[in-house]
Write a protein that binds this DNA or RNA. Structure first.
Length: 402
RNA sequence: GGGGAGAUACCGAAGUGGCCAAACGGGACGGACUGUAAAUCCGUUGGCUCAGCCUUCAGAGGUUCGAAUCCUCUUCUCCCCA
């Protein structure tokens, strides 16, 4: 796609838009860029703090891709300096301080996953790291930057406020976070910055700092947050995320476990279907619609063939109630074990107490038959496929002696 | 530097000498239902050689027949004053 007329571009951008400060400014910049034949510098920053990029992150990246397709210049900023600062939302206060090595390792994985959505070709994308400038700052530079923020301004943030109300500690360096992100915009001379809606405050800080430095303040464009499969904010901490580099069957399965209502958002934000198509799909049976959604998402990441295969596997396993194709095989040394111990040893239950609970509740099957006998000795053989044991709906194992 | 509050199971939060393996809520898990999901209902949610036993209430000691609860010290957090 090459430089569509600005108003058309704007229309396409609206699909991903949550907040836009301001639409007029963005339109003007698009027009100017088109008139001068220049590319807008569109910044998106991500901190390599985990090894997985998930579908929620992919929303602003898809928007970034859109700008790229329009012929503008995406600037992918790896926050290798900010990553070492920790999580300013305080949601995950267990996060250990990251070493340089951790950050580098994560960064490499990130790029691989982001590459599934964005064209990382150096001609079409600028890749930067903020250690480039933060690494060079001395203490007085830092103080100068810190002086740009005020406590009152930071306390306006709900997440800080909540932490104070809950008597949780807020460390001083955490207040640096928005300032650092804002400073990134200054250093990159960003025209536009993209981010999830939770980033709005930080993006505004970029505007502020740019203005103070005599730059034209960036346009802030946030995307809606994609909710996780359980309806909460998508986050690895909650385990409700869809990893971009997940196994296709897992991604497919995760999407299928989504509720009905969020489907619209997922279609809009995580697939390439046109508005009209989405409506048509949603008009069908919700299960069909969800299947289509899962297919589109997998296909978007890994291609149509992979998506077909994932869909087929899923259908076999759940719709036709067939056993999953890849039941893990567990080898134990004993020739025979009491059932609770067997379940524990095979890793199907955490403890024998839990195993007993599962048996009592009728959640345990041996060779497909529900087993209620708590004390049953299960004989194991080294021959054949092993004994098929199932706990609940999802946990399977073939247990062999050996 | 001074004063006050607090640390309870996956999370939040009751409990202030025995009836506490610890209320309640959330989450998670199992079952029913269903569309494979959600919602709903029922149940479970420290461990074990499981109708019994063992180890838990920040950590270490102590008082007591008996401590999550009382005392001492330690570690960590929050708030206020300087």
């Amino acid at each position: 796609m090459s430089q569509p007329p600005p108003d058309q571009a704007l229309a396409l951008i609206r699909r991903f838009r949550s907040e836009l400060v301001t639409e007029d400014e963005l339109l003007r910049r698009l027009e100017e860029a088109a008139a001068k034949g220049e590319r807008l510098r569109v910044k998106f920053g991500i901190d390599p703090t985990f090894t997985d990029v998930h579908l929620g992150h992919s929303v602003p990246i898809r928007l970034l891709r859109l700008f790229q397709d329009f012929g503008h210049l995406p600037i992918l900023l790896l926050g290798d300096a900010t990553a070492r600062l920790g999580d300013p939302t305080g949601r995950n206060d267990q996060r250990p301080p990251l070493s340089k090595e951790d950050v580098e390792h994560n960064a490499a994985t990130y790029l691989e996953q982001i590459g599934q959505v964005l064209d990382l070709n150096p001609k079409r994308c600028e890749l930067r790291r903020n250690s480039e400038w933060f690494g060079a700052m001395d203490f007085f530079d830092s103080l100068r930057l810190l002086g740009r923020g005020t406590v009152a301004r930071l306390l306006e943030r709900d997440d800080f406020r909540a932490r104070i109300d809950q008597s949780q500690p807020i460390h001083l360096h955490e207040m640096m976070y928005p300032l650092m992100q804002g400073w990134d915009s200054v250093m990159l001379k960003a025209d536009v910055e993209l981010g999830g809606n939770d980033q709005l405050f930080n993006l505004h800080m970029g505007r502020l700092l740019q203005e103070r430095e005599g730059q034209r303040p960036q346009v802030c464009l946030t995307t809606p947050l994609l909710l996780g499969t359980d309806g909460r904010k998508m986050s690895k901490t909650y385990g409700n995320h869809v990893p971009l580099n997940g196994e296709p069957e897992d991604v497919y399965g995760k999407v299928m476990s989504l509720g009905d209502e969020p489907m619209v958002d997922w279609f809009r934000l995580a697939t390439s279907l046109e508005g009209g198509e989405i409506e048509a799909v949603l008009a069908s049976h919700p299960r069909e619609a969800k299947g289509r959604l899962a297919w589109e998402i997998v296909a978007g990441l890994q291609g149509a063939e992979v998506a077909d295969a994932a869909a087929e596997k899923f259908t076999n396993q759940f719709k036709h109630k067939q056993l999953p194709a890849d039941i893990p095989e567990v080898v134990v040394s004993e020739r025979s074990l009491a059932l609770p111990n067997l379940l524990q040893v095979a890793g199907l239950c955490q403890s024998t107490s839990e195993a007993r609970r599962m048996i009592r509740q009728g959640g345990v099957r041996i060779e497909g038959e529900v087993e209620h006998d708590m004390g049953r000795e299960v004989a194991l053989s080294a021959e054949g496929d092993g004994t098929l044991v199932q706990v609940g709906k999802r946990k399977f194992a073939r247990i062999k002696q050996g």
